[in-house]
Amino acid sequence: MLDNGALVVDSVSHCFNHAEENLKHPHAQRWNDETFELGEQLQPEKYVHPKEVFHRDHSVEELERLLFLESQVDYTNYHSLPLDDYFHDGLVSREKGFELRDRNPNRVSMYVDINPLDDDAVEQVEYYVKEKNVEGIKLYPARYQNGQDLSLQLNEDAVRPVLEKCADLDVTSVGIHKFIPFATAPVKYFRMSDVEDAANAFPELNFEVIHAGFSFLEETVFAMASHENVYANLENTIHMACSRPRKFARSLGEMLYWAGPDRIVFSGGATALHPQAAIESFWDFEIPEDMRAGNDYPQVTDEIKEKVLGKNAFRLLGKDPEKVRKDIKGDKWEQKRQERRETGDFPAEPWSTYDTPA
């Protein structure tokens, strides 16, 4: 919760498993290393994991303490990841997400990973939507099988049945990883043209583009301007408010100029990144005057910041923020927060609530 009482929604949290025994593919260690290095580049030094904390199997208990004690996040949307071609458990398991939601039903939503190449992918969508009440699904634009990187664009035949089932079931949103290539997958898989095709073909679905604005900015803002069902999810991107403020100013400014403030959502990227630095930096963020004057970017008002940090995500998830506020009032996390406020220890220091590595 912000100091003015506005609720904060972290639109992507993960419970990563970076442990050595989880590595499956020869490039999996490279993926882990690149993720750690990205955190070093994007965050203030005190928010960077100690390496012994990062390279391990993160627990649900650690994630919830990270979100609700070490940051101002009030509500989160957990994304499991379908990367079992690289990691034995997919890197971010479904099971941890359901455990997190079961432990915190008033504070957690979930997008479940789907691999369209699975023979039962369509059946999985139906099961997880109907039986497990997930709000959305999470897709990746590439896979690795039989020694080759494979394209899984939203406009390809393998993916269409999954999107059709999502549309039939009134799924809230389809989250698609874009903009940040991984391992050896070609950069072209991470561009935006397939998102526009899918947005046209399935106007009843929302497409939440993860890491929006990190790269391919012009493609992103034109897609958002042309399609009201395309959302920008700022996972990783928003951390540039800490480390590369002028690049972030351009990304945010172009989104606001072309598409307005109502389809941009905050994501902290836990447990790979720490959400609090991004929350604080974004709340204090202003687009430099020379960039505003030269590009007609709007001023980033407190109203816009509240939309990005929470209101837009609640609307996308179909949640009433006032009901969420009522439901979490006085719960265990609010009680723990109040205890820490009284001792001046909220938010807690980064990674201080984590279990001590063995």
Score class of each variant (00 low, 15 high):
C166S: 10
D194Y: 02
V159Y: 02
K130L: 06
F87G: 02
L169N: 04
I137G: 03
N133V: 00
D149R: 09
T172D: 15
F182M: 14
R107V: 12
L150Y: 04
E99C: 02
K178H: 10
G147C: 08
P116G: 04
M110E: 03
G147K: 09
N115K: 13
Q124E: 14
G90R: 01
E156F: 06
Q153T: 13
K178S: 09
V159A: 07
V129N: 02
L91H: 05
T172P: 08
N200P: 08
A158H: 09
Y86M: 15
E126K: 12
G97H: 02
Y140E: 13
D197S: 14
C166D: 04
V122L: 12
A199P: 04
V162P: 00
D170M: 06
N133R: 12
R94Q: 12
V174G: 06
V195G: 01
K188I: 11
L169T: 01
E95F: 05
E99N: 01
F182L: 12
V112N: 00
D84Y: 13
Y78P: 00
E99T: 15
D113G: 14
A183V: 12
E99P: 02
D170Y: 11
Q145S: 15
H177W: 14
L81H: 09
A121K: 01
D102C: 08
V195N: 00
A185W: 08
Y189F: 15
L100T: 13
Y189R: 06
Y140R: 13
S173Y: 10
K188F: 10
K130M: 05
R191I: 07
Y189T: 11
E196N: 11
Y78S: 01
Q124N: 11
D118A: 11
V159G: 02
Q153I: 07
Y189W: 08
A142L: 08
L139Q: 03
D84M: 14
K132V: 03
E126C: 03
D170V: 00
N146Y: 12
E95K: 09
S80D: 02
K188W: 10
N146C: 09
